[in-house]
């Protein structure tokens, strides 16, 4: 189960762990191909070249192993797709839920990475 985006897909718990181990800065957008998620993937695809030091990735929300995102303490109380998690050196440094604009995403990227 993967999403149809041009982002790097995380398709399992192992791939999630490997991505965090291999990259200092990781942004994961965990969602569906739905109205609130598609605009966020679009912004991430566009920002990839501008932020080469960040791994822009996605994960299908309904994948059983996406519980690595769904069950994060930082996502407690989230009730809106997508769940967007920012990791630095494997640690969650920011977590957002629901649609985000390009400005809101850039604000987080510039602040945490």
């Amino acid at each position: 189960m993967i999403l149809s985006t041009n982002l790097k897909h995380i398709a399992s718990r192992d791939e999630h762990a490997k991505t965090l181990a291999e990259n200092e800065n990781v942004m994961v957008c965990c969602g569906r191909m739905g109205p609130m998620c598609i605009p966020v993937y679009g912004v991430m695809e566009q920002l990839q070249s501008q932020y080469p030091h960040v791994a822009f990735t996605d994960m299908a929300f309904d994948h059983p192993e996406a519980d690595v995102i769904r069950n994060l303490p930082e996502a407690r109380g989230f009730m809106g797709l997508p769940f967007v998690i920012y990791y630095k050196n494997g640690k969650v440094v920011e977590a957002k839920s629901s649609i985000q604009s390009k400005e809101q995403i850039i604000e987080v990227l510039d602040r945490v990475f």
Binding site: R32, G77, M79, G80, S98
Partner: peptide, 17 residues
């Protein structure tokens, strides 16, 4: 609380409820 219980899209977020 947007995305934490407040939503503007039933088809997107209905199943959280």
């Amino acid at each position: 609380l947007k995305g934490r219980g407040i939503s503007y899209c039933a088809t997107c977020d209905g199943d959280f409820f």
